[in-house]
Lab assay of single mutants.
Amino acid sequence: MAAAAAAGAGPEMVRGQVFDVGPRYTNLSYIGEGAYGMVCSAYDNVNKVRVAIKKISPFEHQTYCQRTLREIKILLRFRHENIIGINDIIRAPTIEQMKDVYIVQDLMETDLYKLLKTQHLSNDHICYFLYQILRGLKYIHSANVLHRDLKPSNLLLNTTCDLKICDFGLARVADPDHDHTGFLTEYVATRWYRAPEIMLNSKGYTKSIDIWSVGCILAEMLSNRPIFPGKHYLDQLNHILGILGSPSQEDLNCIINLKARNYLLSLPHKNKVPWNRLFPNADSKALDLLDKMLTFNPHKRIEVEQALAHPYLEQYYDPSDEPIAEAPFKFDMELDDLPKEKLKELIFEETARFQPGYRS
């Protein structure tokens, strides 16, 4: 834990890192770190609560700039109880001085990944967590956004079992017609939660990839272990087919990539493993919904509104309290091709509203 900075004593240090967030945020305490930044909790002297502050230093890398800009653009436009918001952003007053960006968010005690390492969940908890994931996802999908990296560590939890989806750095506007060349190379989302079509096709992607990830998360809540822990690309596919069985001819016809289709045709026939054999203690309604989410063919996979209306979630289902976005989200430009200098300018502009004396 960093010592509390005395008023006016300059930035606090946390594990050798400068955290320049005073005077409003003090009493910093280390939480963890990701690929390009550290997260601390801090005391907000204005709202009198502890908050989470993520320090991001992305400006050396085009990919990190892209992810940072995506996350900020999306989260500043989203407003939903099951999606983490941005409360404040701290950065230098000029673009030349801006080396880091500090993002202030609600402090959540833990995440689903940490929880599943230590606790076996009751059916009631599984049901409530799944409902909140789908409630947040309904809003995301209504904005025409794909999260693309749903996994237990991106689901934040607090002691009252509130759940918030975080990390929109890989999110995209849904565009089933656009052929994202190089899709697989830039697709760094965790393999275990990846839909089979991501490994088999490169053309376009749809909201059904997020539903697949939610199915993987439900299976993990039922058993405290990942359902498809593939060691590499082909191993991942083999794990999936080992449980779902061989795809039907109709399902194979959806695979545009001939090499991928021929690979699947070359494999020995596998039978589907019954879900109640894998999860003998699970609620039968939970397994019915799991089956509809972990469907090989993305066109037959359940959609988020149908999933919310499934009998497993009937005690929570309330369409009048499951809000959607006001308007579909649009990125003005494809960020993939922009140089990091341009992305830095866009991050600077996007964060201006939090600067003292800002006038829109």
Rank of each mutant, 00 (worst) to 15 (best):
A4M: 08
A6K: 04
A9D: 09
A9E: 05
A9V: 06
G10W: 15
G10I: 11
E12G: 12
M13T: 11
Q17W: 01
F19A: 12
D20N: 15
D20M: 08
V21F: 11
G22H: 07
G22Y: 13
P23C: 01
Y25I: 06
T26D: 08
T26S: 15
L28D: 01
S29T: 01
S29Q: 01
I31W: 06
G32W: 01
Y36F: 15
G37H: 12
M38V: 11
C40G: 01
S41T: 10
A42W: 00
Y43L: 10
K48G: 14
V49K: 05
R50T: 01
V51K: 05
A52M: 15
I53W: 02
K55S: 07
E60K: 14
Q62S: 03
T63A: 08
Y64M: 08
L69F: 04
E71P: 00
R77D: 03
R79I: 15
R79S: 14
E81S: 10
N82L: 13
N82C: 14
N82T: 11
I83P: 00
I84F: 15
I86H: 04
D88L: 01
R91Q: 04
Q97I: 02
M98D: 09
K99I: 01
V101L: 15
V101G: 09
I103F: 15
I103G: 04
D106E: 15
D106I: 00
E109V: 13
E109P: 02
T110A: 12
D111L: 02
D111A: 15
L112G: 04
T118R: 11
H120V: 09
I126G: 08
F129Q: 08
L130P: 13
I133M: 06
L134M: 15
R135E: 09
L137C: 03
L137A: 09
K138I: 15
N144P: 06
V145P: 03
L146G: 06
R148Y: 11
D149T: 01
K151T: 13
N154L: 12
L155M: 14
T159H: 10
T159K: 13
C161S: 15
C161H: 01
K164T: 06
I165Q: 10
C166W: 01
C166G: 02
D167P: 02
F168G: 01
G169D: 12
L170V: 01
L170D: 08
V173E: 15
V173F: 10
T181D: 08
E186H: 08
V188Y: 00
A189Y: 08
P196F: 05
M199Y: 07
N201R: 07
K203S: 11
K203W: 11
G204Q: 13
I209P: 08
I211Q: 12
W212L: 15
S213C: 14
V214A: 10
I217F: 15
L218G: 13
E220D: 14
L222Y: 11
I227K: 02
G230Y: 00
K231F: 06
K231G: 08
Y233L: 13
Y233V: 06
L234I: 13
L234V: 11
D235H: 08
Q236R: 03
N238L: 13
I240G: 02
I240F: 15
N257H: 07
N257S: 14
L267I: 00
P268N: 02
H269M: 11
K270W: 07
N271F: 02
V273A: 05
V273H: 03
P274M: 12
P274L: 11
N276A: 11
R277C: 07
P280C: 13
K285H: 10
K285Q: 13
A286N: 00
D288N: 14
L290D: 11
L290G: 09
D291V: 14
T295L: 06
I302G: 10
E303I: 02
V304N: 01
V304R: 11
A307D: 11
L308P: 04
Y312H: 03
Y317H: 06
D321I: 05
E322W: 04
P323K: 03
P323R: 05
E326F: 02
A327S: 12
P328I: 04
F331M: 00
M333Y: 08
E334R: 02
L335Q: 15
D337E: 15
E341Y: 01
K344E: 13
I347M: 12
I347R: 09
F348M: 13
F354C: 06
Q355E: 10
G357Q: 12
S360H: 13
